[in-house]
Design a protein around this nucleic acid. Structure first.
Lengths: 334, 334
DNA sequence: GCTATTGATCTAAACGATTAGGCTAAACGG
DNA sequence: CCGTTTAGCCTAATCGTTTAGATCAATAGC
C-alpha cells in the first residue's frame, strides 16, 4: 500500500508538500499540486487514518452505545445519526450493551482506547460514576433517549412525560379507570419520566393511583408478556394497558392473545414508541410516536457543535405525538 | 491522557517492559508486572489504538456496508455480527449506502483509508470492478445477503432460490394460478435468485410464465405499493402476490388496503423475510423466514477465519423456512 | 534600493505504540 | 567448570502522518 513518501517521490516533492495538497493547509503552486494529485491517483494512494489520528489526535469517529440495534427505535436513531455524521466526515462505531452494565463498562473503555472524538450514549443507568469520570477527563458525550439521573449533561430526548400524560389521558377520556402500566428498567430515566406522566394524568382526573397496576417488563418482549399475563390474570384486572416502549407493547399484545382476550374489546392498549407497521397490526395500534431519526440527527449535530466549541451543552426535547388507531375501546360511562 | 512512557516512568521500567505486560509478548517478573499494572491503574492508562494500529498494521475494526440499518433485516444481521465480533475483540464501523452506488464508492474508499481489517459487504451490484480491485489489493471481504454476479468470493447468503420456490409452490398448491411477483433491485443477486425459484416452481407445476405478472418495487415500501397498485388495477389481476423482501411485503399490503381488497379473501400474499411481528399482523403474514442474525454471526466468523488464514474462502447458504400463517387463501379447484 | 512580506518548498521532530537486538546474570547440561 | 540457554530488562528504530521552523526567491511598500 502506497505511503505519502511514495507519492512525494513520484511527484518529485517533499512529503510536506503532499500533505499540504491533501489538506489544503498551505498554498501550493497549481502545477505542483496537479503533479501530486496525479501521483496519488496513479498509486491509488489513501492516507492512513491511524497515522493521521495519531498525529492530529482526532479520529473522526463517533462511538454509539445503545442497548440493542435490532430494536427499530435504536436502528432508526442510528440511521439518523449516521446520515448526519457522514455529511460531516465522521463514522460511527456501534456498540450494543444489551442493557448490561458490565458490557457498557467494557465498551466505554474500548471507546476511550480508540480515542473516539465523541460519544452518543444511551446509559443503562448504573455506571454514573464511570461516566462522570469520562466527562471529567474531557470526553464529549451526548446522551440519547435517556439521561443519567444525577448528571446535567447534553442530551437529546423525547418528551416522555408529556407523551405518557397524553396516552393516559386518552385512556381516561375513553372511560378507562383501571389502567395498568408496564414499565421498563427501573434505573433508566425514561421509565421514571413516563411513570410521572401517567401519575400526572391520573391526578389531573382525580383518580387514585393503585400500586398494584404498576408492573415491570424489563423493557423486553418476554418480560412484558410475563408481567401482563400476571396482571391480567388477577381478580380485578385493568381494562387498559399502557406499555411504555415498543417491545413491551408487543409483549402485552402477546399476553392478551394468549389469554384469549380481545383487544380492544376486553383490554385496550396504548404503546409508547410508534413503529412503521403499527398501522398494519390487528388491531391497528394506538401509540405515542417518537422521532428516533431526529434524535439521532440532532444528537450528532449537538455533539459536533460541542467538538467545534461553538455550541453550548444543552438538553433537547423532541416532541411526541399520540397516534390514535384502533387498540383503545370506548367504555360506556366514559 | 497518560501514555506508555508515563506508565513506564511511574513503574520505574522501560516502555518495552510495559508493552510486554500489556500484550504478554515476553516474560516479565511477577513483581515488576504488578508494579506496571498498578501504575496503569493509577494513571487510568488506556493504550492508544491509533498508535497500535499504525505500528501493528491491524485495526481490529470490521467495516459493515449495508443499504439501510433501519431495515430490520440488516439491523438484526448487524447485531449478530457485532455479538460475534465483540467476542473476538473486534468493533464494527457501520455504513449505510441507501442502495446508492456513489455512496458505496465513497464508503469503500473511506474504509480503505481507515485500514479496516476486513469488510462485510452487501453490494448494490454496480461497483464490480472497484470491488474486484479492492480484493486484488488484499482486502478481505465477505459478502452478506447478496453477492456480486461475476465474482466468486466468500459470502454468507440465504437459500433464496429454494425459499422462493417453496413460497410459490405453497401458493400454487392452494389453487393459485396467476401469481404476481414483486421484485427488488435488478442488479442485486437476491432478485435474480428469487425470481429463479419462482420460475422453477411454475415450471414444476407446468404453468406458463406471464411476464405481465413480474413487477419491480425497488426493494422499498413505496415502490412496491405503486407497483402493486398498478398490478392489481389491471383487467386480469393476479389472485396472489409474492413480495420478495420485507419492505415490499408491507408495500403490497398497503396497496391491497388502499384498493379496499381483502387479504386473504381477494388477494393472497406471501412475503420473503420474516419479521418479529408478522404474526401480529392483520392478517398474520405467511412468510419465508431468513436468519439474519445467523448471517451476521457466520459472516464475521468466516471473515475472522480468513484473517487468521486457517479458513478457506467459501460460500455459505443458510436455510430458510416457510412460515404458514394467515395471508394465503385456498382457492376452490386448487 | 532596501526592508518587510509573502509564496513555495523542504527538513526534521513529533504523535504513542511494538519489537528486533543487545546486555547481564542465573540456570543448566555434560 | 565451562559453554549454552533463558529470563528479565533496556535502547532505539520504526509505523505514516502533520507541522513548526528554515530557506530562498519574488513581490510589495516606502
Amino acid at each position: 500500500m502506497a505511503t505519502i513518501r511514495d507519492v512525494a517521490a513520484r511527484a518529485g516533492v517533499s512529503v510536506a508538500t503532499v500533505s499540504y495538497v491533501i489538506n489544503g493547509t498551505k498554498p501550493v503552486a497549481p502545477e505542483t499540486a496537479a503533479r501530486v494529485r496525479r501521483a496519488m491517483e496513479e498509486l491509488d494512494y489513501h492516507p492512513d487514518a491511524s497515522a493521521q489520528s495519531l498525529r492530529t489526535r482526532t479520529t473522526h469517529v463517533i462511538g454509539v452505545v445503545v442497548s440493542d440495534i435490532a430494536n427499530p427505535f435504536f436502528a432508526t436513531l442510528v440511521r439518523g445519526a449516521e446520515d448526519c455524521a457522514r455529511q460531516h466526515g465522521y463514522s460511527l462505531l456501534i456498540c450494543n450493551t444489551g442493557e448490561d452494565l458490565e458490557n457498557e463498562r467494557i465498551y466505554l473503555s474500548l471507546l476511550s482506547r480508540r480515542r473516539v472524538d465523541g460519544l452518543l450514549l444511551a446509559p443503562t443507568g448504573k455506571n454514573d460514576e464511570l461516566i462522570g469520570r469520562l466527562i471529567d477527563r474531557g470526553m464529549n458525550i451526548v446522551f440519547i433517549d435517556r439521561t443519567p439521573p444525577h448528571l446535567q449533561a447534553p442530551a437529546v430526548l423525547s418528551q416522555n412525560e408529556a407523551g405518557a400524560y397524553q396516552a393516559t389521558c386518552h385512556l381516561i377520556e375513553r372511560g378507562h379507570r383501571r389502567i395498568g402500566i408496564v414499565l421498563g428498567l427501573p434505573d433508566v430515566s425514561t421509565t421514571a419520566e413516563r411513570l410521572r406522566g401517567y401519575r400526572r394524568a391520573l391526578a389531573h382526573y382525580g383518580l387514585e393511583l393503585d400500586e398494584d397496576l404498576l408492573v415491570y417488563g424489563r423493557s423486553q418482549v418476554a418480560g412484558a408478556r410475563e408481567a401482563c399475563l400476571a396482571l391480567l390474570s388477577r381478580p380485578n384486572p385493568p381494562t387498559a394497558i399502557f406499555a411504555t416502549n415498543n417491545l413491551m407493547t408487543i409483549g402485552a399484545m402477546q399476553a392478551i392473545r394468549k389469554l384469549s382476550l380481545r383487544c380492544p374489546g376486553e383490554v385496550s392498549v396504548v404503546g409508547f414508541d410508534d413503529f412503521e407497521w403499527a398501522e398494519a397490526f390487528d388491531p391497528p395500534l394506538t401509540t405515542v410516536a417518537q422521532d428516533p431519526y431526529g434524535i439521532g440527527q440532532q444528537a450528532v449535530g449537538l455533539l459536533l457543535g460541542l467538538l467545534s466549541g461553538d455550541r453550548k451543552p444543552e438538553q433537547v426535547r423532541l416532541p411526541v405525538e399520540l397516534r390514535v388507531r384502533g387498540s383503545v375501546a370506548r367504555l360506556e360511562g366514559g
